[in-house]
Design a protein around this nucleic acid. Structure first.
Lengths: 194, 194
DNA sequence: GAGCAGTGTACAAAATCTGTACACCGCTTC
DNA sequence: GAAGCGGTGTACAGATTTTGTACACTGCTC
């Protein structure tokens, strides 16, 4: 497909997002900074909000893909921390100009994908019921995105490396516990798939 | 104009040039690595050699532009050294698979542009005759590219920073001398422009 | 000599990008 | 409060770019 222009728009947008909040960014600026016609922008995106959605979905995919073949939760979340750090200003500017719902949607998608793939990677799927797995994923997803929301809200002061390292360890323990619980239920004759 | 595809081809090419010599790189590889149709490559370039030429000319422009507003020869050449370092493998792979003429053309273009712009920047143009200026530029151009040829040929062992720092000092001295010579000739009644 | 992987070319169709034009909105300024 | 300004969003025709398909050719290998 080779949509280089679309990529260029996204890059220019992220670039601008590093400089200023979302609501100060105009289509004209984006279009000027990658030297394309304004209509070309509208050919690819309905408006700036559509672009934001696209970027968010893209980032979700990018981050999640990084974790697809990861060895441990800890390692996975440290990777995620690196991502957050590298996009610090952009995340901050989105946070400050977009509704909380929008940011939560962003963080939830990332968290969901990451947790889901990690869960698969750790083969938890075979050890707990489908229902339990969904609940666990949901719990971690909300926990993770909530934590990040708080972290951004407090000006990203805490060291994300350390923060997420701790969380990673915690999650690893929890998942082990869930697995153990799953095994116990299996021994007791419970159904393992929904 | 927004020729993002062309840029992508160039980038993929430089990427591959960091991995392997020019004559091991196929159009197919380039095309695959940026996920475009093979015909799209031929739409932009006649063949790989045309791509190389384009890349060389582009690099020349890029490097030269960096030196357009430079304060001293020394500073300019240290910039050039950084460039050489950052493209070390690519230059090496070109060196090892392309004719000496091709590499010399590359180095000569860069050297010529750099020296010419530096000469202008230093306002030498007003102090020596047009003929002298061309000769001086030619001399430095050959000296610089010859030096780099030798350096690459010897496996890029010497530290280019140091090497070029010395050369820069030497050149600065020479140009000062040429300027002085120009002034003397002017005083003696010689023509200053050809 | 057949099979394979790559090159280079041709052409039509599809996708993308641009120029131009218009209606609309919010803001400033006279 | 009307005019001017800068930005948005839409429409459409035409230009440019990209793709798919096909074919002839080369060099290599088995």
């Amino acid at each position: 497909m080779a949509q280089f222009t679309k990529k260029a728009i996204v890059e220019a947008f992220l670039e601008l997002l590093n400089e200023k909040p979302l609501d100060k960014i105009t289509v004209k600026e984006i279009v000027d900074s990658c030297e394309i016609n304004r209509n070309t922008f509208y050919y690819h995106f309905e408006d700036i909000r559509a672009l934001l959605t696209f970027v968010i979905d893209g980032e979700v995919e990018r981050v999640a893909a990084k974790h697809a073949d990861v060895e441990s939760l800890e390692e996975g979340f440290i990777e995620a921390a690196h991502f957050a750090l590298s996009n610090k200003r952009a995340v901050y500017h989105i946070y400050n100009s977009v509704s909380r719902e929008e940011l939560e949607r962003y963080l939830n998608s990332i968290a969901e994908e990451v947790v889901r793939r990690l869960a698969e990677g750790l083969k938890v799927t075979r050890e707990v019921s489908e229902l339990d797995r969904e609940l666990i994923i949901h719990f971690y997803k909300c926990g993770l995105s909530g934590m990040v929301m708080a972290w951004v809200g407090e000006g990203m002061k805490a060291d994300p490396e350390q923060m997420i390292r701790s969380l990673g360890k915690l999650l690893e323990g929890s998942i082990s516990a869930a697995m153990e619980k799953g095994r116990q239920r299996k021994r007791a004759g419970g159904k393992t798939t929904g």
